[in-house]
Design a protein around this nucleic acid. Structure first.
Length: 543
RNA sequence: GUCUCCGUAGCUCAACUGGAUAGAGCAACUGCCUUCUAAGCAGUAGAUUGUGUGUUCAAAUCACACCGGAGACGCCA
């Protein structure tokens, strides 16, 4: 990559000035500056060695021009000490050639790290709602991005199939079942209130099983998990692994111990857990938490933290270099706790990255309503997928940074759907496809050598330079753990492409130009398809 | 009270993590289809980046204080 080359060159030069590491930036300057890349390195070195940044910049300029004249067309130095680089067109032609022929740099060994990314992990107490949809879109897209960069990524769903909420679920289904059989019973407010509970009860009635033999708990979990999997499939999200909580909290070994039992013993031995008022407490304050937390209640039942510690221990044991958890921001208070646990288990808390995404609200009569599974007040992910389509839906969840709160205005999203950005981007592919298809009717001389230098108009160069940026954007997404930069990039690329399309014809009487432009179209199509694929969005050939 | 995130154009959001003249789309207005898809393009208009102070060559970005919005703080998960 051109940017990487510049960074390497500049790194070498930095060593001549100071031994300290300078955190300089190489980026694309604002539009008003007609150069390809820019760096602030001279100003940063100036801070370090107390020398005029303009003088430093000039020295750097001279060194580079002497050695790297193959890459660089010209260098300019501006005001406080920016160095601007104009790259030779040949570099972008080469890049285009690499894109079309899928020539990638060999991924470094340490880039093949194993990463476990856990997301959604909604309790099997109800269907997925749009809040889960956001987590699903971010997690899945991030997985694709990390895979693209060469990491070995495993996507995992942690299914809480035990615990208090499952007990309530069981009771809820049982009660609905009884109601269906004619018993008049009031339905408590703190039970699961959604219609799907009745559906499950109806299904049980329909199957006409002897009531003594009915396992309401299992029926409920199985039905709901099945529907969750189905929704995820429709949303183009596939998990590599489904991890059941019961595996660590209920399954016992030869000594009648569960994983959770063992982890609590370990913590007690290490003095990270202590008994108080009949309960077992986790001394999480020792590692930065604000309070100590109960691991085992005075009645002997474990809390959810206990099994979560066991779960994280299990993850680490599976030899992942990195754990990524994607949580709704309502779990933010839990971050310190789980990091404290990682420390207690003897690992560096940097081993785990927790990405929080802000909640999704539904606008109803100008009021925002938060999703709640318990009350049954939520909008199903499935509903949205059916109404606006999978592509537009995923796009909508990915367009914003996870840090920004989303207000889902249902009517607005529906009416806007035709003008949604996702179509704007997909349209690029459709237009490329159309040209490439038609080009097959054109008779080109065999073995015609492509003369890339014919791609020299403003629109063509801008398009070429944007294509070359793709990998940098993907890296940025991985660095910031957010796919939204890629979305922004694709919108901009689509804009650049449509402008080119309006101004220049690809298939013309001038065969040399046609052949060269056809390469540009091929490259654009590849990048658009790759980009959309990283977002989990399709690239239809016809629209 | 403690903690997390947010406040940028009328609306929804960006701004490559401290860089140059803060960018898009929607909504509004004016034009462009006999040629590879008009789900497109060209143009007009719209910003004291919530307020204040500070840090420095440089602040929407960092620090402190205040104002406003959302959320989390259980022997629930």
């Amino acid at each position: 990559m051109i940017k990487n080359k510049l960074i390497k060159i500049l790194n070498r030069i930095t060593n001549k000035y100071t031994n300290k590491k300078i955190k300089f930036i190489v980026n694309i300057p604002p539009k008003c500056i007609n150069f390809d890349f820019s760096t602030n390195i001279a100003m940063l070195i100036s801070d370090e060695i107390k020398k005029n940044p303009i003088i430093i910049a000039n020295e750097i300029k001279n060194i580079i021009l002497k050695k790297e004249n193959k890459i660089i067309e010209k260098i300019e130095i501006t005001k406080p000490g920016f160095i601007n680089f104009k790259i030779k067109n040949e570099m972008f032609y080469k890049k285009l050639h690499k894109i079309i022929n899928n020539i990638k740099k060999k991924t470094k060994k340490n880039n093949k790290k194993k990463i476990l990314i856990e997301f959604v992990s909604a309790n099997p107490t109800g269907p997925l709602h749009i809040g889960h949809g956001r987590g699903a879109a971010i997690g899945d897209s991030l997985s694709r991005i990390l895979k693209y960069l060469g990491y070995n990524v495993i996507k995992e769903y942690y299914l809480n199939d035990t615990g208090n909420q499952i007990n309530i679920l069981e009771k809820s289904v049982k009660l609905r079942y009884k109601q269906l059989n004619g018993h008049k019973i009031d339905f408590p407010k703190d039970y699961y209130n959604g219609d799907y509970i009745i559906d499950i009860a109806k299904k049980i009635v329909k199957n006409n099983i002897n009531i003594d033999k009915i396992n309401f708990r299992q029926e409920a979990i199985e039905n709901i998990t099945k529907s969750i999997k189905k929704d995820l499939k429709e949303f183009n999200v596939k998990f590599d692994n489904w991890f059941y909580e019961s595996k660590i909290s209920e399954k016992k070994d030869k000594n009648e111990k569960t994983e959770v039992d063992k982890i609590c013993n370990y913590l007690q031995n290490k003095k990270y857990a202590y008994i108080n008022k009949g309960a077992l407490w986790l001394a999480s304050t020792k590692f930065g938490d604000d309070k100590d937390r109960v691991l085992k209640r005075s009645d002997g039942r474990y809390t959810y933290i206990a099994s979560d510690i066991a779960y994280h221990k299990n993850k680490i044991r599976r030899n992942f270099a990195k754990l990524i958890n994607i949580w709704g921001v309502d779990h933010h208070g839990y971050v310190k706790r789980i990091k404290a646990c990682i420390n207690m288990l003897g690992y560096n808390k940097k081993k785990i990255d927790i990405i929080l995404y802000q909640l999704v609200f539904i606008k109803k009569n100008k009021q925002s309503v938060q999703m709640s599974t318990r009350s049954g007040e939520f909008i199903k992910l499935k509903t949205i997928i059916n109404e606006v389509g999978k592509d537009a839906c995923r796009f909508f969840f990915l367009i914003n940074s996870p840090n920004s709160q989303i207000n889902f205005d249902l009517t607005l999203t529906k009416t806007k759907s035709k003008k949604n950005h996702v179509f704007y981007i997909q349209y690029v592919n459709a237009r490329c496809y159309s040209i490439i298809k038609k080009s097959k009717n054109f008779i080109f001389k065999k073995n015609k050598k492509i003369n890339f230098s014919l791609l020299n108009t403003e629109e063509e160069m801008i398009l070429l330079k944007n294509l070359a940026e793709f990998d940098n954007v993907v890296i940025l997404c991985a660095k910031t753990m957010s796919p939204h930069h890629l979305v922004e990039y694709l919108i901009n690329l689509a804009d650049v492409y449509h402008k080119f399309y309006e101004k220049h014809r690809v298939l013309t009487k001038n065969i040399n130009i046609s052949v060269a432009r056809l390469e540009l179209i091929k490259g654009t199509q590849i990048i658009i398809k790759n980009g959309l694929n990283l977002l989990g969005i399709s690239s239809p050939n016809k629209m």
